[in-house]
């Protein structure tokens, strides 16, 4: 049902393909609830993860997903590899392919690296985050989580708050949500708003109270502390005062609204602790769902022959 053997971005997927991945993921969610959380469909397959950027949760989530499917999972550690000796990315990727990998999971700080590699490799390439472009499996797990609480994604009002300019999570979510018929409101300081955002089909707000009003889903994004030296924000304290997700502000959203965060969280910067730990929060569910969704992606991609 998937047309491509690579998962490069949500941009490339049709609504039908997205639904097919989400439906498959619910089967795998059941598997994760069992005593024996392992099924055999990827027996004999090898999944290699190649991460050029630090990551704990995504890498662990993919590794667990591969293991739950009975695949062999190998972590190619960049800092101790020949990359530091000057090997090009393509040569590294071709080497991994020749080592016998069937699927490659890649994260890189430059946008488009997975796309570039996919053109030269015969094995499946899964984008686990490329620069500020896309993070497709995060958006898929967010869609899965929303769907498990809200039945239908069509017609929902989804507010995304934070550093949109640097956020691949925001971009993938905007693609996914709009493809499935939700309305996306983006809430951010003008300095963290990328050019051409409206073209993606999102409404832009610079006032959080206006943006949150009547929302079904409120998603706070991480303020990337490592980018603070560039002067996008006067101070983290001021950001919290103007854009922090507080209990008071959540009252403006729909009563049954859910609170999401892709992690890792900076408590007291983009989200208040009482909201992160409150009854509307589905943040930890997102983590569990991430494994089911990644199992679905690996399972479906390994079936595409072309």
């Amino acid at each position: 049902m998937l047309k491509s053997k690579h998962l490069l971005g949500i941009k490339e997927l049709t609504p039908e393909e997205i639904y097919h991945i989400l439906d498959t993921a619910s089967g795998f969610k059941d598997v994760l609830m069992r005593d024996i959380k392992k099924v055999p469909p990827l027996r004999g397959k090898t999944v290699v993860s190649l991460f050029f950027e630090p990551s704990t949760r995504t890498r662990t989530s993919f590794a667990l997903a591969a293991k739950r499917l009975s695949a062999d999972d190998v972590n190619f550690s960049v800092s101790s590899s020949s990359v530091v000796k000057g090997e090009s990315i393509l040569d590294t990727a071709l080497t991994i392919q020749s080592l016998g990998a069937d699927l490659m999971i890649i994260r890189h700080s430059s946008s488009g690296v997975p796309h570039y590699l996919s053109r030269s490799l015969n094995i499946s390439v899964v984008n686990a985050g490329d620069g500020s472009n896309e993070h497709p499996t995060q958006a898929l797990l967010d869609l899965f989580t929303i769907r498990s609480h809200k039945k239908d994604i069509k017609g929902l009002e989804v507010a995304i708050i934070g550093d949109i300019a640097h956020s691949r999570v925001a971009k993938s979510n905007i693609y996914g949500l709009t493809k499935l018929g939700a309305r996306v409101r983006v809430i951010c300081p003008p300095t963290l708003m990328p050019a051409g955002l409206e073209k993606l089909g999102a409404d832009v707000f610079h006032n959080i109270d206006e943006g949150i009003k009547g929302a079904d889903v409120v998603m706070a994004l991480r303020i990337q502390l490592e980018r603070q030296s560039k002067g996008f924000l006067p101070s983290l304290k001021e950001y919290f005062n103007l854009y922090g997700l507080t209990g008071e502000r959540m009252k403006l959203a729909k009563k049954d609204a859910i609170v999401m965060h892709p992690g890792p969280m900076n408590r007291g910067v983009e989200i208040a602790s009482d909201v992160a730990d409150g009854p509307q929060s589905v943040i930890l569910e997102q983590v569990t769902n991430g494994i089911a969704v990644r199992m679905a992606v690996l399972y479906l991609l390994s079936g595409v022959k072309q």
Binding site: M1, D23, T24, S26, G27, F28, D30, V31, V39, P40, P41, G44, A296, Y299, L300, S302, G303, V304, K305
Partner: peptide, 22 residues
């Protein structure tokens, strides 16, 4: 019981079988 993940033709067929609920 859904048996799609346990089929022996999973690597031979052209498309992955649809995973249903167990």
């Amino acid at each position: 019981l859904d048996i799609s993940l346990y089929r022996d033709d999973i690597n031979i067929k052209n498309e992955q079988p649809v995973v249903r609920a167990t």
